[in-house]
Nucleic acid binder design. Structure first.
Length: 427
RNA sequence: GGGGGUGUAGCGAAGCUGGUUAUCGCGCCGGCCUGUCAAGCCGGAGAUCGCGGGUUCAAUCCCCGUCACUCCCGCCA
């Protein structure tokens, strides 16, 4: 099934690519960030299966694994559930791997979002190696060590990784080299303790009480030959920092088997989060269903509500994500209302969906898999642009054709557009 | 918007602390040889060292600026 590319701009999610309408002055189409609303409409209208190899567009800054136009295998099923989508996806990927002479065992392991964040510091964990993170905040509630004390008293956390048995492989300089890495994650620094036969060596150990040290070693099962690294800050910064440290050291210590394909499901995401301005936003998108058991606390405790969404991760890269969708108009209204999207805006933007839901929609859900990222991982390349013909540069330009480019003023006039950018009309 | 890296022949790279004709591989051109199959041998062309400025007797190398590409943070699923 194919769906339109010229669609409607929606307030949620990434920045849209806009296309001006010549026929209706002053109005714009948006290129799809995903065919989400179309495929749901198809389910509601009675198609029980859908798939599409879909081009998607998101006007955000680029990364090694991200460019603004990309390709998804987009699929949706009615009368299914999370297990149904997961099972289908696993079979699809297994089949795909077979075609290219690789293999995997299904079902894939699953990890809850909160566990992923705690143990790996990220919702896209690379599970090919250990070096897992442990929370040690509880051991330092009354600590004299100001760095930990300040982090904890302002609501932060102290977490650590025990680099078991790697002490001899890590010089003092190696440990000091972690500092700039942590700085790049907005962290203030990183502390470490080296466990030796002659006792712990560390610039910070002198600030710990005997109790603190002992319970720390017990909790982390620390023995001579180990090195413990710490971060203390807000949870977000600690996770980001230790995740970066973990990956860096995993590579440096040669712990990552790059012939391995380690798939993981990440599930039980929260339904909502605070966006940068502190407002309530969808973690996934506004059509994601909460799990049945949490619906009752949507209004009373929205941030505790778990969503029926799932991501699939391969070797530490998110290669797809999906969810069960809301198939009830009333529930959809409640969620939009919690997101602060007023009745009028809901109606103007998603009215067609709300109306369709009213006629009785089947339970449905699906997933979208990132084709470019999967290709990148299967080929072992380091950039998504290695597997895209005519890729965009980091400034989202096409070097070969020179797009984007200036256009003659007449063309703008026809589209009822006037540019405020300097020199734009001199093409 | 912020931080880091890179820019040397068509392509991929080397060039230590500034010092005579900027090096190597692949490719290209010419010749020789050859039962080819990623051939071999000999010879050759090809570089405003991203661009602009500065320091210096002397700059690919140091400094400032600028452009491009790239990695990361913000942003994005």
């Amino acid at each position: 099934m194919e769906t339109p590319v010229l669609g409607k701009s929606t307030p949620e999610g990434a920045r849209d690519y806009l296309v001006p309408s010549r026929i209706t002055p002053g109005t714009f189409f948006a290129l799809p960030q995903s065919p989400q609303l179309y495929k749901q409409s198809l389910m509601i209208s009675g198609f029980d299966r859908y798939f599409q190899i879909a081009k998607c567009f998101r006007d955000e800054d680029l990364r090694a694994d991200r460019q603004p136009e990309f390709t998804q295998v987009d699929l949706e099923l009615s009368f299914t559930d999370r297990a149904g989508v997961m099972s289908l996806t696993e079979k699809l990927l297994k089949h795909l791997l077979k075609q290219v002479g690789r293999s995997c065992t299904i079902p894939f392991p699953r990890i809850a979002y909160q566990d992923a964040i705690l143990r790996f510091g990220t919702d896209a964990p690379d599970v090919r190696f250990g070096l897992e993170i442990e929370d040690v905040s509880g051991l330092f509630t009354d600590t004299a060590f100001t760095v930990f004390k300040n982090a904890l008293s302002s609501g932060g956390v102290v977490r650590a990784i025990n680099l078991k048995g790697h002490s001899s492989a890590l010089s003092r300089k190696d440990l000091d080299d972690l500092t700039p890495l942590v700085h790049s994650c907005k962290g203030k620094g990183i502390a470490w303790i080296r466990m030796t036969e002659d006792g712990p060596q560390s610039p910070i150990i002198k600030y710990f009480s005997e109790d603190e040290s002992q319970s720390l070693y017990r909790k982390l099962h620390a023995h001579p030959g180990d090195v413990i690294v710490f971060a203390a800050d807000t949870e977000k910064i600690v996770c980001r920092s230790l995740s970066a440290v973990r990956l860096y050291l995993g590579r440096k210590l040669g712990l990552i088997d790059d012939t391995q394909l380690a798939f993981t499901w990440v599930e039980d995401f929260p339904l909502f989060e605070h966006d940068e301005t502190g407002r309530t936003a969808s973690v996934h998108h506004p059509f994601t269903s909460p799990i049945e058991a949490d619906i009752h606390m949507l209004e009373t405790d929205p941030f505790a509500v778990t969503s029926d969404a799932y991501d699939i991760v391969l070797n530490g890269s998110e290669i797809g994500g999906g969810s069960m969708r809301i198939h009830n108009a009333e529930l959809q209204r409640r969620v939009l209302s919690i997101l602060g999207i007023d009745e009028q805006t809901s109606h103007d933007t998603f009215g067609f969906l709300l109306e369709a839901l009213q006629y009785g929609a089947p339970p449905h859900g699906g997933i979208a898999l990132g084709v470019d990222r999967i290709m990148m991982l299967l080929l072992g390349t380091e950039s998504i642009r290695d597997v895209i013909a005519f890729p965009k540069t980091q400034k989202a330009a096409c070097l070969m054709t020179g797009a984007p480019s200036l256009v003659p003023r007449e063309q703008l006039d026809e589209l009822h557009i006037e540019s405020i950018a300097p020199d734009i009309n001199d093409a």
